[in-house]
Amino acid sequence: MKPITRNRTTTIEPGKTPPVVQERTVQAAPEKAQAQCCAKVSGPSMGCHD
């Protein structure tokens, strides 16, 4: 398994929230999950259709 995301791989106890995940949920990232939602995030467009 080779990571694409640069998150560190950390072994965790089953049943506990993985640390990488905790890190993500507490941080409100400044930009939106914009890869595929309404492309209007990148400016005016009808991009939500693609």
Partner: peptide, 9 residues
């Protein structure tokens, strides 16, 4: 949801 992505065999 976990925010992870990997290449696998």
């Amino acid at each position: 949801l976990s925010g992870c992505a990997d290449v696998l065999t």
